[in-house]
Amino acid sequence: MDNLKIGFIGGGAIAEAILSGIIKAGLVPARNINVAEIIESRRAYLQTTYNIEAQGEGNIVGSSVDVLFLTVKPQVVHGILKSIYKSVKKDTLIISVVAGLTLESLQRYFSEQPVIRVMPNTPVAVGEGMAAIAMGQYATEDDKKIALEIFDSVGKAVVLSESAMDAVTGLSGSGPGYAFVIIDALADAGVKMGLTRDVSITLAAQTMLGAAKMVLETGKHPAELRDMVTSPGGTTIAGIYELEKSAVRSALIDAVESATNKSKSMGKKNG
């Protein structure tokens, strides 16, 4: 990959997280990355921080790269695509992280060109993101390998059919929001029990991080790991009983379902 030239249309937080991951992982040198961003101060920040190229015009970036990321807001993407698609090289791989933008819609702009749709989440900013990748009909195994290498550099990535993308959005796309609510609630509980706020937040966040790593690194089912720390008549089962009594499990399932349905409605509007 080190000879590839990679471009971004949009220089916001997700673009920064992805490009920083690419640079840190050594996938391509910083000089091979070019970002189109309309805000001058943001361009200057990205250039200074990462030693990359930054332009004000998307056409310049689109015409000169091998892989082009679409990292803009859903409400502006169609206008941007209409202004740049003719200038993009015909063999450029298009990777979209735009919520609700379907492969079919992308293919209308880039006919017979490799396109990939990705749903990442915000922890890509700290190298612990989760991304689901859906392949367009002209995307090859080499294209898939490129996408996987890039998103593995900022966390983990899986390849799924596009039909799963709304559920992915409801679970991992929106999931950090649910986790932040849980961490905040646990921290409140710590404060109620006499701990300081900063200590409570650290205890709650590190506990969630550690539990997640145990699931990923042991390969054990979460229920099995739960049973390992739940002694008969002990403290953990007392706490879990209260969670079950308050229907926390059902609330989380309902949250994912609601977010999935919202994603579906956004797709109909923006796709």
Score class of each variant (00 low, 15 high):
2 D>Q: 11
159 V>A: 07
212 A>L: 12
54 A>L: 05
154 V>F: 03
127 G>K: 02
182 I>Q: 08
186 L>R: 00
78 H>V: 13
31 R>I: 06
166 D>Y: 06
23 I>K: 15
11 G>N: 08
77 V>I: 15
23 I>V: 15
48 T>S: 11
13 A>W: 04
62 G>S: 10
39 I>P: 02
27 L>N: 08
43 R>M: 15
190 G>H: 00
129 G>C: 08
212 A>V: 13
11 G>D: 10
187 A>F: 09
173 G>T: 01
243 L>P: 10
248 V>Y: 14
235 T>I: 13
199 V>I: 13
142 D>I: 02
29 P>L: 05
233 G>P: 10
149 E>V: 02
90 K>S: 10
175 G>H: 02
168 V>I: 14
166 D>R: 07
192 K>F: 05
18 I>V: 15
20 S>D: 05
115 V>C: 12
216 L>I: 01
213 K>L: 13
168 V>T: 06
145 K>P: 03
168 V>H: 03
165 M>H: 10
167 A>L: 04
72 V>G: 11
30 A>S: 15
44 A>T: 14
247 A>I: 03
242 E>G: 02
192 K>Q: 05
223 A>F: 01
171 L>W: 06
221 H>V: 11
36 A>K: 02
43 R>S: 11
57 E>Y: 09
120 P>Y: 01
195 L>A: 11
250 S>M: 10
15 A>V: 11
69 F>P: 01
243 L>V: 01
66 D>E: 08
7 G>H: 11
253 I>F: 14
38 I>Y: 07
120 P>M: 01
124 V>I: 15
1 M>D: 09
248 V>K: 04
245 K>W: 05
109 Y>C: 06
155 G>I: 13
140 T>M: 06
164 A>I: 06
239 G>E: 02
232 P>L: 00
150 I>F: 09
219 G>V: 08
61 V>T: 07
185 A>H: 03
145 K>N: 11
158 V>A: 13
249 R>S: 11
186 L>V: 07
31 R>N: 09
79 G>D: 15
46 L>T: 07
212 A>C: 15
37 E>I: 07
199 V>M: 11
165 M>T: 03
127 G>F: 00
234 G>H: 14
189 A>T: 04
220 K>G: 04
39 I>F: 15
248 V>H: 07
59 N>Y: 03
184 D>W: 06
156 K>R: 15
262 K>G: 06
159 V>K: 07
114 P>A: 06
138 Y>M: 04
236 T>K: 02
96 S>H: 01
210 G>S: 00
65 V>Q: 03
149 E>K: 14
86 K>A: 02
84 I>L: 04
133 I>G: 12
183 I>W: 01
216 L>R: 07
198 D>W: 00
104 E>S: 12
143 D>L: 02
270 N>S: 01
185 A>V: 09
138 Y>E: 12
57 E>F: 04
75 Q>K: 09
57 E>H: 08
266 M>I: 11
197 R>E: 13
18 I>P: 10
87 S>D: 13
105 S>R: 14
167 A>Q: 04
225 L>R: 03
67 V>T: 10
57 E>K: 14
133 I>P: 14
40 E>D: 12
98 V>L: 00
180 F>N: 08
53 E>M: 06
2 D>T: 03
195 L>C: 03
95 I>V: 15
3 N>D: 09
189 A>P: 05
255 A>L: 05
127 G>A: 06
252 L>P: 10
12 G>V: 08
119 M>P: 00
266 M>G: 06
170 G>Q: 12
